[in-house]
Amino acid sequence: MAQAITRASTPPPVRSAPRLRLPWPLSIYQTAVGKKWVMGLTGMALLGFILVHMTGNLHLYEGPVEVHEYAETLRNLGTEIVPRTWLLWALRVGLIIAFVLHIHSAYSLSQMSLAADQRYRGGRNYIAASFASRTMRWTGPIIGLYLFYHLADLTWGWFNPDFVRGDPYHNVSESLSSVPVAVLYIVANVALAVHIFHGAWSMFQSLGVNSPRYNHLRRYLAATLAGAILVGNLSFPVFVQAGVIDDGGRSFVEELRRHGAAEEDH
């Protein structure tokens, strides 16, 4: 067979065209560059959430009352227009969708790259690829698993015997006062920061945000974001362990509720 360049005579494609062509604009998601866009956009949304979440959590340093008020503010978001907690739930649903898409695009892009790649028997000698960029496929699942634990622990209260629904200050201080939980928290947040260090930079490239005059700032921005989130998030277990965040095992919300119930008894 002569070596003609036709579609038939190149090596077989590693990725065949999708069997079902989705309608526009969903069809964009069927391409790798499209998936990278989705990954970048959802990454940006998740990063925004993480940043707000971490900033909001700084209320822990003000005390249980302020944390409770902050939580109430979130629940009351948009009550001028929609019933209480609706907007919060809308945001949660949005986050869940972003999270699912982020994971799905990552998974299918990884599959594509694994199919395209062949291992070097002598190994590679990386120059530009950083620890962060090479471990995205590890830090991602670590964060995902941790997120599940995080929700189960602090939202659903599966693992915490002293769990009080609706009292973040109490739950956080109870949960993180356990050394293994604090260690788990720290490990996961280091993974998160590493993930963000590459992801926040990578996002610009994937979304095509590139202007040679400002390009050098993208690395700084990614490092700053990762650093801020790391410092903020790691401060919580550290300060819980140090006893700075501590309600002495007495839930402010529980007392509030008991107080409220007692008043109703009158």
Partner: peptide, 20 residues
Amino acid sequence: VETMEAFFGSCTNHGECEEA
């Protein structure tokens, strides 16, 4: 781009290519 995607993997912005 779509022909490229048929044959090759997906970019994760390592930057190794630029160095090589």
